[in-house]
Simulated assay, not measured.
Amino acid sequence: MLRSTMTTRRAVLAGAAGALLLPREGRARIPLGQPQAPYYYRFMLGEAECTVVSDGLLPLGDPRAAFVNIDKDEIARELRESFLPASAATLEQNVLVVNFGDRAVLFDTGMGTDTLFGTTTGKLLTTLRQAGIDPAQIDAVVMSHAHIDHCGGLVADDGTPNFPNAQYYIGQADFEYWTDDSKVPAAYPARGNFLAQARKNLLPLRDRLHFYRDHEQILPGVTALAAPGHTVSHTIFMIESGGKSLCYIGDLAHHPVLLLERPRTQFAYDTDPVQSAESRVRMLTMLAANRVPLLAYHFAWPGIGHVARQGDGFRYVPAPIQMQGVGAL
């Protein structure tokens, strides 16, 4: 009789515990599909306040088509060992705004309204406003080069500038190359889109463009460093404030694994792949040796970190994100 009572009691307790684990009828549930946090991140560089905003994800597609001069099995190995999918590469578009106090400088502008890479791009104006930045407050727009995903957000579809009070900076060779149909090879990927967006966004602003030169301090605290090859005058920028430095590397490297572990791997969208690889090795060697932090336009959000030498190549070390107050490099 005692054993039967104990067995029954265990069954009742087990049933009660199970009932506690089941959702009660009518209990409120957290709905699915909640939005992510706003797409911006702030940190201090010396006395300057930096904000990274996003133009959205850029799906590149099959990495075996985009990264060339490298064995396909090697691509799969590098991605697998970095816990990244081998079937599709997705790039970020990390747009940097540096507020020096007396001027605000924006670096590159995303895809604008062009949907060559889908509908996840073109978010820049939205994310700027999420970050409390009015496009009319931008004093200077600095472009690393004239590719569609870097100059595409300069001008609205009605022809009005998205940054009406800004001075614009770009390499003269890029401006002339990407607005001239005769200069871009017929085999260049998505040639029509690249030409159309360069013309749409750059030609209306021709009278407001400043053509920078290598090692020119284009603005106080912003120095241009030529790194050609990805485009004819692709340029990176050393940004300095209060004794601190950050290098905005634009498209010096699109991928933190495939173009760093073997940095002479070539990229399908380079105008001169060999020159691009040499620029990449030269500039990454300098950044690694001097331990200069970088911001990469296409690396995983928010794209801030360091590079270090690793064998014949490099490894990327992301910087920790600091969410208490405004962090500092």
Rank of each mutant, 00 (worst) to 15 (best):
R3M: 05
R9L: 15
G18F: 13
G18K: 10
L22I: 07
P23T: 12
R24V: 11
E25H: 11
R29N: 00
I30A: 08
L32H: 06
Q34D: 03
P35V: 07
P35W: 02
P35G: 07
Q36H: 06
F43H: 03
F43R: 00
L45T: 08
E47S: 14
E47M: 12
V52T: 02
S54M: 08
D55W: 01
G56T: 07
P59V: 11
G61T: 12
A65W: 12
A66Y: 10
I70M: 15
I70D: 11
E74G: 07
R80F: 11
E81W: 13
P85N: 06
A86K: 03
A86E: 14
A88D: 15
A89D: 09
N99G: 11
N99C: 10
R103L: 13
M111N: 13
G112R: 10
T113S: 15
T115E: 13
T115I: 09
F117N: 07
F117G: 00
T120P: 05
L124N: 09
L125H: 00
T127H: 10
I133F: 01
P135I: 00
D139C: 13
V141G: 07
V142I: 14
H145E: 14
A146T: 03
I148P: 09
G152Q: 05
G153L: 02
L154F: 04
L154Y: 01
L154T: 01
G159W: 01
G159E: 02
A166V: 00
Y168N: 03
Y177E: 03
W178I: 05
S182L: 04
S182R: 09
P185K: 12
A187W: 06
Y188E: 02
P189D: 05
F194C: 05
A196E: 06
Q197P: 00
Q197I: 05
A198L: 06
N201R: 03
L202M: 03
L202A: 00
P204A: 01
R206S: 13
R208Q: 10
H210W: 02
H210Q: 05
H210V: 08
F211N: 06
Y212P: 07
D214Y: 13
D214R: 11
I218V: 14
I218C: 11
G221M: 09
V222D: 06
G229C: 07
H230A: 04
V232Q: 10
S233W: 02
I239E: 01
S245N: 11
Y248R: 00
G250K: 00
L252M: 08
A253R: 04
H254K: 10
H255W: 05
L259P: 01
L260H: 06
L260D: 03
E261F: 05
F267Y: 15
F267S: 08
A268M: 14
Y269E: 14
P273T: 13
Q275G: 15
A277W: 08
A277D: 06
S279N: 04
M283Q: 15
A289G: 01
A289Y: 02
N290G: 13
V292E: 08
V292D: 04
P293S: 02
L294K: 04
L294V: 15
L294S: 00
F299W: 08
A300E: 13
G303A: 09
I304M: 09
I304V: 14
G305L: 05
Q310F: 09
D312W: 03
F314H: 03
R315W: 04
Y316P: 12
Y316T: 08
V317C: 14
P320F: 08
Q324N: 15
G327W: 10
G327F: 12
